[in-house]
Structure formats: structure tokens, C-alpha cells
Amino acid sequence: MSAPRLELKAVSKRFGDLEVLADINISVRPGEFVSILGPSGAGKSTILQLLTGALSRDGGAMACDGVPLDGNSHRFAFMPQRDALMPWRRVIDNTALGLEVQGMSRSAARAVVQPLFAEFGLAGFERNYPAQLSGGMRQRAALLRTVVQESSMLLLDEPFGALDALTRARMQRWLSGMWTRHGWTVLLITHDVREAVLLSDRIYVLSPRPARILRHYEIPLPHPRTPANSHALAEVEADILQTLLNLEE
């Protein structure tokens, strides 16, 4: 079997006296959709920051396609917890930011992202500013900015956390469809159990700080998930919810 796209072994991290990650073991195979669920403050965003190189780990090992991740050698496409769109850039230039940083000229970068606007439900808004977009559109723009980087893996930090319930449900379906079509490898951070169950092949549940992997779920149901699956999904969801609730006691 080929090496996993991403592998974390016994990764740990502390901020001074605060031990945040105790023992994190995660692996993601190419084309897989994996979610990390955990209570607020458990250290979910910290895991992604280790992967983007914004923080460095204190212990353990991380590898991508079998190659150890050290220094800033590897780049994952990262979508931060808030959309982080630049208010002063037009939507098209926001989505092209990663390409420009990679050295593409502005016009070439625009030409790459432009054809994707329709698929991301942003057609006609290329020349607008982010402040003129709705919450759902902003998230789609941020996601478009993430996927055009053509990275081996997408790291999404609670992409729909700030949306209202209806928009969020819509965006989840949309993302599920996009993922099936494009075959991305995704690591999704969320604290929405239903979202994780609906979208993921596998789910890791984190314990509260200091975080370790508490449980690991496989959901071997086809994507995109239809109402026919809803019973099986609801069972997994209830199980995970129970696990998380038991933590509180």
C-alpha cells in the first residue's frame, strides 16, 4: 500500500506551561476526506498551524507522502477559521492570491481562477469587494482561494462555523458534491458533529486539552450522502455525540 498523504505520529505541542497537544496520531490517504472533531479549545487549530508551519511541534513526527515535514518545505492549501479575505482586494484577486504568491503575474492568476467562479457560485462578482458578498459567498471565495493553489491537500479550519444553519447546510452539500467531483484530499476541522458525519470518510475525535485521539470512526458510505443513508449517519452521529457528552462528566 502506498504511503499516506499525511501522517502525524505522536505529535505534541505546548505553549509555555499549557500543554495543548499530548499525543496526536492521524493519517489521511490520498483522496480521503478526514475530519477532526473536538471540544472548543482542544487544540484543533493548533494542529493545522503545525501543518502550515506557523508553529513548530515539540515532539513526534509529521510526513507528507512519506517525506518528513520539516521547516517550510511543504505547502498545504490552508483555509483559516475566519475567511481572511482582504477587504482591499477584489474578489477575483483574493481568490488568486495564492497563485500570485507562487510567482504568477496578476493577469495570469486571474485567468486561472476566472473559469471557476461559476462552479463556486460567484459568477458576476469577480470585480466586487468582499464586503459586498454574503457570508456563504465569502466562504466559497475563501474555499476557491484554497483549492486553486493545487496543493496536495486542503486544510479547512471550521469553514462554515460562522454561517447560519440554512446556509451552512447548503454549503455542506455543495462541498460534498465538489469533493466527489474533484477528488481533493481534505483535512477538515469542525465542532459540528453532523457536518463531520455528513462529509467525512473518517473522523478523529479529540479529547479536551491536553488533546489526544479519543476515538476514531470510519463511515464507509458512498458520497454524496443521500437521504437513504440518513439512518446510518444518524447512528454514527448519536454515537459521537454521546462520546463528546461523556467527556464532560
Binding site: 498551524q49 502550515t52 506557523a54 483559516p80 477559521q81 481572511a84 482582504m86
Partner: peptide, 20 residues
């Protein structure tokens, strides 16, 4: 978040200064 995002894209310090 914008700075972290640009850093994750591999942007240099100078680039982050100018663009963000």
C-alpha cells in the same frame, strides 16, 4: 489570519508587508 494565510502560501516577509 491574513498574515498566517499568506505565510502558509509561502509569502516572504516583504511580500506580506506589501500585500497585507
Amino acid at each position: 489570519d491574513i498574515e498566517a494565510l499568506m505565510a502558509s502560501m509561502g509569502a516572504s516577509r516583504r511580500r506580506i508587508f506589501v500585500a497585507a
